[in-house]
């Protein structure tokens, strides 16, 4: 900028470093009016919304109440009306979304399982709503994706169903819970015989075993051990009792697939026979989830994970 031009521009007169100057171009008059408008706006805002702290409280604002439905600890719906705040706003929005979801839940609730499973649109809803219900409530035990954990919780993705894999049975399991147990055989059978039964159980599903011991184990299984009472003469289990099918390749309590050696596999089986099973407990969800939520979960577990046969 030449000297001449610099002189023609209005400045504050301040000069720094020889030639650095501050311009004083006037603002348009309406500009300051927009500033006054923002002041007026802020006053209206103070009045309408929570603003000023006063001691341990604060101004709550007027004319901006929010009403929402909340749940008490014993599961009752209560209406609450508060002054405007973000948390209540979230609750009110959650209520709205629940109302939108409700029409889908109602549709599923009104139809038999088989009808829902044939309806691609409803199954799309089951996939997403059931998926999040599963993550929230079931995944802590049954693991992400329902893969389960040997020695803890059944795999829901395969086709093995201890208590039956029909829609009705799965719904029953979720609603009422299950209490699976196997008695301990410590002291009932001597260790040598437990070893023989173990070999027999391994032989049923084609795992490495001692054929002679297995033969002896067969006799104990169907005789003095009394195993066949629960597991059946064919060792295929009984869904009414929740006793496991010992002839398939699926293991829940004995981690046979996780052991590389024959001794290790046998050790896993004999451990279960010796100690029994006391952890096969599935809690009841009847009071905690709504019937329509359980229905969606049932459909999700049956169709998206792996029910039926």
């Amino acid at each position: 900028m030449s000297q001449d031009k610099a002189k023609s521009v209005n400045t504050t007169g301040h000069v720094w470093d020889d030639n650095l100057q501050e311009l004083t171009n006037p603002l348009p008059m309406w500009w300051i009016w927009t500033f006054y408008i923002t002041i007026v706006f802020s006053i209206i805002y103070w009045v309408m919304y929570p603003a000023w702290p006063i001691g341990h409280s604060y101004t709550k604002g007027v004319g901006n109440t929010i009403t929402y439905t909340a749940k008490t600890v014993d599961g009752k719906d209560v209406q609450k009306t508060t002054h405007w705040n973000m948390r209540s706003k979230l609750m009110a929005e959650m209520n709205e979304h629940e109302a939108v979801q409700k029409q889908w839940f109602d549709k599923v609730a009104a139809m038999p399982f088989e009808e829902v499973s044939k309806n691609a649109d409803l199954m799309s809803f089951v996939n997403s709503a059931g998926g999040s219900l599963f993550k929230d409530n079931c995944a802590p035990c049954h693991q992400a994706g329902g893969v389960g954990k040997i020695g803890f919780s059944p795999n829901l993705v395969d086709d093995v169903w201890i208590y039956g894999g029909t829609y009705d049975k799965i719904q029953e399991t979720i609603t009422l819970g299950r209490n699976g147990m196997m008695p301990t055989f410590r002291g009932v059978l001597p260790d040598a015989k437990i070893q023989q039964v173990g070999n027999y159980v391994l032989s049923l599903s084609g795992e490495p075993h001692n054929a002679e011991a297995a033969k002896a184990g067969d006799a104990i299984f169907h005789g003095e051990g009394g195993c066949h009472v629960c597991h059946g003469a064919d060792a295929k289990g009984n869904p009414a009792l929740g006793s496991a099918n010992l002839t398939d390749k699926n293991w829940l309590w004995a981690n046979v697939p996780g052991q590389a050696t024959a001794e290790g596999k046998l050790g896993e089986v004999t451990k279960v026979i010796t100690e029994g099973v006391s952890r096969g407990k599935m809690p009841t969800w009847g009071g905690r989830l709504k019937p329509e939520q359980i229905k969606v979960l049932t459909l999700y577990v049956h169709d998206s994970l792996g029910g039926g046969k």
Partner: peptide
Amino acid sequence: QVRQPLFVVLSDGRVRNR
């Protein structure tokens, strides 16, 4: 492919991917 789990062995030994 569903990655949780990547595969599952069915009771008859068949392998399922979803």
